[in-house]
Nucleic acid binder design. Structure first.
Lengths: 125, 125
DNA sequence: AAATATAACGCAACTTAGTTGCATTATGAA
DNA sequence: TTCATAATGCAACTAAGTTGCGTTATATTT
């Protein structure tokens, strides 16, 4: 089950995602919000926002968890149908609004796929 | 720099990768080898085998590091040019011998990309 | 507006992945 | 056999993420 009460903490997190097109790592979120809420609360609210299809998560290059607002992604199934891009220069991570086609894999049942791309973003080139 | 001395521990690890087509997580390796070597040693040898282009690493679904023998992959650049597949049923992770084409991303410089697929493998279907 | 059930929060303690520093061991060259 | 030093083991540490439990605050009911 997802969010049932609009607490201060929930509103704060929703506000961050509303005003941010880029993805944010949990570590950064916890640092950003350390004066306002406990890290346990951050993790718990993120879980619920996932359930509600408000945000989606993915694993970054170093193995850290990142979260981003759901837009064109089909969050009902929690599949990441778009790639995620991390810029080596500025460090920012973003959802790319393109879809990718999986290579043909005979005899396998594909449930979900995540594509993570590392490079230099348009701002830093 | 990579491996310079053929120690017992290095031979043990090389032997594991030689006799295993599938990928192995560091956690499983450490568990498997706990009687034979320290976990610090496992991490250090894996780093060196990466430098030598003997194995490549990638991040799995849960954020854990996985390692697999290099075969058709171009390990000079340490780019994962092939997808990795994890089976929901048996849990095994393997390198898929297919190449995938990235979606066109205008204005971005792509350095590396990793594709991680979750589903059910041919053995478990 | 007060009462109240309980969802949500804070805190501390914990688990687990991965790293670091340093003393000790063992490899391979001289 | 000697010996320099690469490599290992160990313990202590950092950091991400989780759990349990007592307390707080939301939103519904009275």
């Amino acid at each position: 089950m997802g969010i049932t009460r609009q607490t201060k903490q929930v509103k704060t997190l929703l506000n961050i995602f509303d005003n941010n097109e880029k993805a944010i790592s949990v570590v950064d979120l916890i640092k950003l919000l350390e004066a306002q809420m406990n890290k346990t609360t951050v993790y718990r609210i993120l879980d619920k926002l996932m359930d509600d299809g408000v945000v989606h998560s993915f694993v970054g290059k170093g193995g850290l968890k990142w979260y981003a607002k759901c837009q064109d992604c089909s969050c009902e199934t929690h599949n990441d149908v778009h790639p995620h891009f991390q810029c080596k220069t500025c460090g920012e991570v973003e959802c790319l609004s393109v879809s990718f086609t999986l290579p043909p894999i005979n005899g396998y049942m594909v449930e979900s796929a995540s594509l993570f791309i590392v490079g230099v973003c348009s701002n830093c080139l």
